[in-house]
Simulated scan of single mutants.
Amino acid sequence: MSWTVYLSGEIHTDWREQIIEGCKAKNLPISFTSAVTNHDASDAAGDGLGEESSNFWRDHKSAKVNAIRTKTQIEKCDLAIVRFGDKYKQWNAAFDAGFCAALGKPYITLHSADIIHPLKEVDAAALAWAQTPQQVIEVLEYVVSAQ
């Protein structure tokens, strides 16, 4: 069986690449999908639909265009990894985790111990919590390879 894993959340570090490369090195049967990780492109996703008079409406329109991709990829994935970084608050990642929970889609959270409290509800619905990309790779290896 080939698995599809959706990578959600923080875009300012290389955690996605670490997981993808680590799984590739183990020859795991996983394909990865992700939200747009180019911040400027994501912010401008709705700009082709016309100029807006305020940032609220620009963001609103771009969020909806981005949701086409995000919603579709989460619905199609077998499992999601939801990363919360320390530097920025990833409200979109929390929303993705909630969407996964509502769909009954399994997800793993990836974040440091110092933000356990603000993520308690998100972690409560997750099937695992990892603190490093290497831990995620180990869980993925078990899930897709265990016999």
Rank of each mutant, 00 (worst) to 15 (best):
A41D: 14
R16L: 02
G50E: 04
L119G: 14
T13P: 02
D59R: 14
L28Q: 06
N38W: 01
L28T: 09
S145T: 15
R58C: 05
A41L: 13
E121M: 13
K105G: 13
A124K: 08
E141G: 11
A130G: 00
L119E: 12
V5M: 02
I81W: 01
A126D: 04
I19D: 02
H111S: 07
D123G: 02
I116S: 10
R83G: 01
N38V: 06
N92G: 15
E21H: 14
A94K: 09
H117T: 09
G9C: 03
W91P: 06
W57S: 01
M1V: 04
W129P: 00
E51H: 12
C77K: 02
A125Y: 13
G98R: 08
L119S: 12
H12V: 00
E21M: 15
K87P: 03
A97W: 04
R58V: 08
N66R: 09
D123Q: 12
I11E: 03
V143A: 14
T4M: 09
A41C: 05
G22C: 04
K71A: 09
G104T: 10
V36W: 02
F56D: 00
D114G: 04
A126M: 09
D78G: 11
P133L: 00
F56K: 01
F99E: 11
A94L: 05
Q131K: 11
D59I: 08
V144L: 05
S112T: 15
L103R: 15
H39I: 06
Q73S: 13
V144T: 15
G46W: 03
G98T: 05
S34K: 06
H39A: 07
L103H: 13
Q73D: 15
I19G: 07
G48F: 14
E10G: 00
Y6P: 04
A67P: 05
L127P: 00
D78F: 09
W57L: 13
A125Q: 10
S2I: 03
Y142K: 13
W3K: 03
S53D: 13
I19V: 15
G50T: 07
R16Y: 05
D96F: 11
A125E: 09
